[in-house]
Design a binder for these strands. Structure first.
Lengths: 337, 337
DNA sequence: AATAATGAAACAAACGATTGCATTACACAG
DNA sequence: CTGTGTAATGCAATCGTTTGTTTCATTATT
């Protein structure tokens, strides 16, 4: 107990209660080894001095951390900001689920400078497991750690030969569905907005191509492959609209953020959506039904995805086996198509 | 060292190096007390076995946590989801700043069920300080803890007599600026969308009223006080538009999320923006310049706000004094007004 | 009445680091 | 050859818990 009389640890409380520290520990844990009367007396005393045992000491002793590391690797685009809506939505779901399971969420935005960024977290002893939001270009590093460290799951692609466990949606199929929908709507001339350098995007584009091929329209695809973020998408699309004649009447955007910029650029060019041009986005982020017009999109059920991530992670923490999951994408038809 | 020969702690490494654990500790900390030769040998050995000292044990010993708790209290609106863009944007900034200062970010979404939610975190010993994103309706609880616990800062209102330290923007002034702008645009009939139960919103509304009063138009204000979230805003506004004749030509929304829904509802009612109705939002969230038309709004500089939160927090952690800050709101004119 | 069985609490050894202080070893001066 | 100074390392206490193993009273059993 310090000079101000504050109870700082279990020993202080023990002295106050006239028992041993061990007894206090058990009493606070409500162990039946301690007589009910003593137990209640000690608990009351703790409440009175609003004392709460030190979590770190406890964790050290019982060898668990009570926290899950959620890492956002920003390998291929250092400038990318954590506030990109996709990350944020995912993070919200994870925070909810982890809180529910009594774990804290240790958030780190990581710019991989050396190959040790992941082991540093994993071996630090401050997390019971790790969730990666996106693999960036760090597949090798992740696989290396995954070989020896089980409680590790990533959101993202599931590439052939991949060691680490991942949850992600079937991007190829998503691209196909979007394209077929536009074909159904009568589109005959298409454009894809997005940069296939990212593997998920490449898979989506592949799906688009395959759907077009199946309908014998392989030649009807325009590509705007510029690297599109919230900031760069609008000018790029606007410029593209200036030079592209005729404007394709079916536009598939690689993400909702890009689609939103497309809607605005189209509106500024006096092109009506869905009158003249049909637009489909990707992700179904929360703002997708708030755009004008509300955005048709390929829904990646992030709530579901997050649930899978958590489920797999805790399975693995408790020693069970748990394998990668691929989610089915779903077309959400609103008014932009 | 366990059966697999993995080095699990400094004692293992010490045995391997033929020195004492203390020496290993100092060597890894690169202390000059250890001969350079020994130091390098031990560091090399650690690298070889990729051993990293346990952070929790270290923290326990040196009595620091290396993490800052970021709490999102959801008192008055239990259903509110963490993914609300405002929280997310703020969180992104905080994550960046904390990472830069070598601290982890412990995220918790909190639904206050008892008055101990804050002390539980503060006294747990696992954080060096706490940032609250919003005060919700928990002012009493927060003030109580703030009396004895210094490293605590909140984003939000700065009410008279408030004990705890806060950073927030001048909401009253924001409301005034928005209103004056609409008056300049020629509006003579106004509406405010937002629920003044939340103190920030109430202050904004007050600003609106004051600006109108100054121009002798106190009577020209309509109020849609419904509790407006991303999900409920659109139907509420839509219905309001059905019954309100004539539609006011100056709309001040209490947040960008509400403004976005207003834009959509107006568009669906065939009302042109900014032709017939002028709309101003609040916050300047990232999507505000992506709407159709891009949204005029009162900018709360969240980057700046986050920087202040962090600055104050670390000041207080190191024992300095640091007081509340009020940020100046700024009108961003885009095309909705 | 002596002994066994039970229940309650104390003791002490972890958990894995850090760090003040004691000790050792060696070089050099006297 | 002893004494002193210094550089390098070892020792052991400590951070605040948890928990297996005593210990010590009681009560129950025969």
């Amino acid at each position: 107990m310090d000079d101000q009389g504050r109870v700082r640890n279990i020993t202080d409380l023990a002295r106050l209660a006239g028992v041993s520290p061990g007894t206090v520990s058990r009493a606070l844990a409500d162990s039946s080894l301690i007589a009910k009367k003593t137990r209640e007396r000690i608990q009351e005393l703790a409440r009175e001095h609003d004392f709460r045992p030190n979590v770190m000491a406890r964790n050290l002793r019982i060898k668990r951390a009570g926290a899950i590391g959620v890492l956002i690797p920003l390998g291929h685009e250092t400038g990318q900001h954590i506030s990109v809506p996709f990350f944020m939505t995912m993070l919200g779901h994870l925070a909810d689920a982890l809180t529910e399971r009594g774990h804290d969420l240790l958030l780190s935005r990581i710019i991989p400078k050396d190959p040790y960024w992941l082991s540093r977290v994993v071996d630090s002893g401050r997390v019971d497991g790790v969730i990666l939001i996106g693999q960036s270009d760090q597949n090798d590093v992740i696989d290396k750690v995954a070989e020896r460290y089980l409680p590790l799951v990533a959101w993202g692609a599931n590439l052939p030969g991949q060691v680490h466990c991942s949850v992600g949606s079937n991007n190829r199929k998503g691209g196909e569905i979007a394209t077929r929908h536009l074909i159904d709507r009568g589109c005959r001339n298409f454009a894809f907005f997005g940069d296939p350098i990212a593997p998920e995007i490449a898979e989506r584009l592949e799906g688009v191509r395959s759907a077009l091929a199946q309908s014998g329209m392989s030649d009807a695809l325009n590509l705007l492959p510029a690297h599109l973020t919230a900031e760069t998408a609008h000018p790029a699309i606007s410029q593209w609209l200036d030079v592209t004649k005729p404007i394709p009447n079916g536009i598939i955007a690689a993400s909702d953020v890009i689609a939103m910029s497309a809607l605005r650029a189209l509106s500024e060019h006096g092109v009506s959506v869905p009158g003249e041009v049909h637009v489909v986005g990707y992700d179904d982020l929360p703002f997708a039904n708030q755009t004008v017009p509300p955005l048709s999109t390929i829904r990646q059920d992030l709530a579901d995805g997050a649930a899978h991530l958590i489920d797999i992670l805790f399975r693995r923490i408790s020693g069970e086996k748990a394998e990668s999951v691929m989610l089915e994408p779903e077309l959400v038809i609103r008014q932009s198509s």
